[in-house]
Design a protein around this nucleic acid. Structure first.
Lengths: 247, 247
DNA sequence: CAGTGGTCTAGACCACGCG
DNA sequence: GCGTGGTCTAGACCACTGT
């Protein structure tokens, strides 16, 4: 199954990819200017830009306007661990992780009412969490908690991001069921700029709904990660006689 | 946060997107030719193609060479249910689902040895499952089972795709732990052509490792889905006193 | 200011699908 | 053969980044 590369841009992309993965071009290094590269490969600039677009989608190259094209530094380092009420993140090296948390009081509307199972307009607390690792993006989380549960759980004043990242969000009423829906899609323009990622790179979006023993939804969260940096891990344990095989 | 659309291609993409989602352009319908559209919007053809590329990444438009651009028919219909040894798929309407299963005897190499915890070169059975729904892609699965377990589980002769889709793969030794790693990435050229999807659309890739009570890996699987059609759902149940909070 | 990428133009030729 | 999209060219102008 040898690869016949018909188009020039793929041929160029393959060549540059080889140079990057082989280490001839090191992480963080700047590539020659597009005009230079186009000259080297004897193609027009649009063609060369097509090649770079391929590598950009793969997360190998990062374009910075006015500066140049760079070999992307970190690659595939974030791990999201499913089945937890915390943010569930663990980075290889937690150095230089800047996290911003913004707490807002809002009212349920649209999708949120269905997710949380509350009435339209009922009060919610929104935690908007953005974490950046150095220059590049890391994660974006929007967590919604019904207002009554917020105070009941004593969460109001202590939403430090350390708590969001490492600890459980609702410690008093233990969650029973966590349902996480995962999809891959292009980022919205907002998400692309907030995460400082290219709109060409897909994001991994996770919608997490946490219910307590009474079946009440105690938390709904929209989590967005740059697709080229995230791995989400879900572990399911089965007991010997399992009874839940609902189709 | 009103959206100011600076580039023409995004303005055109937004306009076409509105027409599609509003129903003025119906699913399956063919758009005007690129030359015509370029004329209507008073832009050059490359610019218009840029707009179509945006919609293609979003899965709204499908380009077919020599025929035209079409509004994509189905959208977001497949659901992958995690935590099962079956393929875990459930489609809204299971009509016209064509599945191809190819069984091959191979030997462990590369990543597979680590995933399965076997020695390099040890015999494996590979099940290559491709399912298509009508014209569009559905899913691609590569399932690897150690040879000795294959015969032990009595799987060899009965790998019908119905069994793969609906039933458990290894019924005799009940699996204890299923670990699923999810990531979003652009498809490989192979995957794009096999799934008949555009290489511009990201895929949702799931690597599933199933271990039995003895900790032996009884199955490893690479699952690939077109990102614009799949939702993966993972449900985690917690008992009242949980003890696993490892960082 | 010079250099860079971001966007766009107005063509060209080729490969595919269909009649 | 004809219309379609796929690819490519050789420029142009603008916006951003640094000095």
């Amino acid at each position: 199954m040898t690869e016949f590369v018909s188009s020039r841009r793929h041929a160029i992309a393959d060549d540059l990819r080889r140079r990057i993965t082989a280490g001839h071009l090191k992480p963080g290094e700047r590539l020659s200017s597009e005009a230079e590269l186009a000259c080297q490969y004897m193609v027009s600039t649009p063609t060369l830009r097509g090649a770079l677009a391929v590598l950009e989608r793969e997360g190998l190259v990062q374009k910075i306007q006015g500066k140049g094209n760079f070999v992307r530094r970190r690659f595939r380092k974030i791990t999201y661990v499913g089945g937890r009420t915390s943010l569930g993140l663990s980075t290889a090296a937690d150095t230089a992780l800047r996290v911003t948390v913004r707490k807002t009081e809002i009212r349920a509307h649209g999708h949120l009412t269905k997710l949380l199972g509350v009435l339209d307009g009922s009060p919610l607390t929104e935690y908007f969490c953005l974490s950046l690792e150095g220059e590049t993006s890391h994660s974006l989380a929007r967590v919604y908690v019904p207002r009554d549960l917020t105070s009941a759980a004593g969460l109001a004043g202590e939403c430090t991001f350390e708590g969001m990242v490492t600890g459980p969000t609702v410690p008093t009423s233990p969650p029973v069921e966590i349902r996480e829906t995962v999809c891959a899609r292009p980022p919205t323009p907002d998400e692309a700029s907030t995460l400082r990622t290219s709109s060409a790179i897909a994001v991994l979006a996770i919608t997490r709904v946490v219910a307590d023993s009474a079946g009440r939804v105690v938390e709904a969260a929209h989590l967005v990660f740059p697709g080229d940096r995230i791995d989400a891990i879900f572990t399911t344990h089965h007991v010997i006689n399992e009874r839940r095989v609902q189709g």
